[in-house]
Design a protein around this nucleic acid. Structure first.
Lengths: 350, 350
DNA sequence: ATGGTTGATGAAACCAGTTACATGTGTCAA
DNA sequence: TTGACACATGTAACTGGTTTCATCAACCAT
């Protein structure tokens, strides 16, 4: 055994001692090398290399008060809509030299609050949440720490936190209007949980309040392809005179389309199908899914800028409303009409 | 103006002073409350509440030497295969009370090295990378800091770092064998970049070395739906006698299927189509995409356990080989045969 | 020759916690 | 009555950097 088996990672004191300088000088070599003479710089550099010195992130953070990362809370990563959003969020945060910690909540408020606590415990400088419905404990946490926090996927200028998102009620109504404009009045809506998901809740509520002359029935299903499948089964059984199915998410619409095809019901000849989200794959279903495009990439970008401005300069961001819009592909048609509408080839980039 | 506008966040000293105790006692209230008398505990707790005290993550980290988060480097979040993987990675890391920082590299080694540096700078305790081809600078970084790091999506027991993944060559060969077994011999392969992506590179190389009696031509295309579309265009132009198209990723296969349908070429009647990945949506294309299932969810789970064990106990993980397997749906058929094979309804959960 | 300025460096305080060790008090058995 | 011991608490060292301030030598203009 050698006399010194010190495996401990070298710190700045070790480096300084090895180089025969003070810790202050060693520190300067890292942060303000121009303030150190060339000879000393090289001495210290050599010591750092031979000791395999790596600065401690925690020690840095304790001085700067900065951790250089923020946390995002999303229901799931398995839905492409969130993946797309996070993708842009991460790349834009990177431009602000900020990293992204991702936490999934499964859409459960308790888990969200718990994960938010974890994010703050590990040092997140800011929080980006999904929607505006959260546990009181989460708000207390944010208030207590004065943590910059924004809510996304939902626009509400009156909300306590800055919101960056789209008008979910308008998106649902855009979808409904498209169907009623095509002559449909017996419409079945397949949607995910509304209790814990305010985006879905707002969409459903908008349709209940402004049925636009249509007779709408609602079917609650899990937010998955399978949910879309079973939703269609229920619709066909309970309401065979339905002429159009409106899914509150493209994931469910994908499942619905699959099930309709399995039942040999042509779309849009036999039944019109409409989604909300505009996933990357929705354009490539057959027929291409008509849907309401949600600008999640722009949202990721805006959210990144907003939280970055807040944590860097203390600028509390303004709410941002992003416009959703109908993407007319081939899964919807005029009532009683078999002519296909023009195909929009690929999804929009935003 | 009030006499004290001290906006600075309260620290433990402030709390201790307000409660009339020492910092040590205040600290104990947080960490070992059972070692503090009930009366003192309440005094301190009250002081913490009124001062809105929040412990500093950095100060904690500097003492414990733990940051409680690890970093993952993936090419992109936009491909569902990575989203699925990260989804499971994150949920399993959470069981180890570890958070996940996600960094995307666009498959560019320089960006990967840079982002790895950033991850370590902000304090990541471990690194989970994709594939085994990286810049020397990245290895130096890992070695210098002695940072636990594993490579995923690739199995190679001889690699310097522990690998957790599948045999990419075997996956490609499984796909090829399926096609040759159905009588196909004029096969066109559409694949993504091989220079920067060793997973794709290994798959392509495997097919070049063991063509299994087939005449294979290779078409390099971007790893996107559009890449699949243009790949099909090139195949139809350059090699119209092709009887089967093998895509090295489901994303490209999705685009290929779309383009084939646009050209009124039935699948598998006119042409067989095969993918690799088994995305959640692949089962719901029409026809359902026959593909090689890559166990990315199991991989996320294994990677989480591996890196957690390493950072918690110093246990260097063993390489893990995960089996891929063919998922036979309806996009491939016997040469000259129009009979559809049985449909596998949904993707496997792993 | 001398006062002023610049440049390089070190000593020590500081950030915000944790924790080893010391101290003091109260209880109980010998 | 005293020694032993548990319990509650305080003192101060410690984590690993950054930064302020002081020091000192070299250089330059007066």
């Amino acid at each position: 055994m050698s006399s010194k088996m010190t495996k401990k990672r070298a710190n700045l004191r070790d480096v300084a001692a090895a180089a025969g300088v003070s810790v202050a000088t060693a520190s300067r070599v890292m942060n303000t090398p121009e303030a150190v003479s060339e000879a000393t710089r090289q001495k210290v550099q050599a010591a750092m290399d031979s000791l395999r010195f790596m600065p401690s992130a925690a020690a840095r953070a304790i001085n700067s008060g900065r951790s250089r990362f923020v946390g995002a809370l999303v229901p799931t990563l398995d839905n492409a809509i969130f993946a797309r959003y996070l993708s842009r969020l991460e790349s834009q945060l990177d431009k602000h030299r900020l990293s992204l910690v991702v936490s999934t909540t499964d859409g459960i408020p308790e888990i969200e609050a718990e994960k938010a606590r974890t994010l703050i415990n590990i040092g997140a400088e800011g929080l980006i949440m999904s929607g505006i419905t959260h546990r009181p404990a989460l708000y207390e946490l944010i208030n207590r720490g004065g943590i910059p926090a924004i809510a996304t996927s939902y626009y509400d200028p009156d909300f306590a936190l800055p919101t960056i998102g789209y008008d979910n009620a308008a998106a649902a109504f855009t979808a409904l209007s498209h169907l009623t404009g095509l002559g449909h009045s017996r419409i079945s809506v397949i949607h995910g949980p509304t209790e814990t998901n305010d985006r879905t809740g707002t969409r459903v509520e908008a349709l209940r309040r402004r049925p636009d002359g249509a007779k709408i029935e609602f079917y609650l299903e899990p937010l998955s392809i399978e949910g879309g499948c079973s939703g269609v089964q229920r619709v066909l059984e309970a309401r065979p005179d339905t002429t159009a199915i409106l899914c509150m998410s493209d994931v469910q619409a994908t499942g619905a389309l699959y099930e309709l095809q399995r039942c040999d019901i042509s779309v849009p000849g036999g039944l019109s199908l409409l989604g909300i989200d505009d996933l990357p794959g929705s354009a490539h279903l057959c027929p291409g899914l008509t849907t309401v495009h949600l600008p999640v990439a722009r949202m990721g970008l805006a959210a990144a800028d907003a939280i970055a401005g807040w944590v860097e300069n203390g600028t509390v961001p303004e709410p941002v409303l992003l416009e959703s819009r109908l993407v007319n592909r081939s899964s919807t048609g005029r009532l009683g009409d078999v002519t296909l509408t023009e195909v929009t080839r690929t999804g929009a980039a935003d």
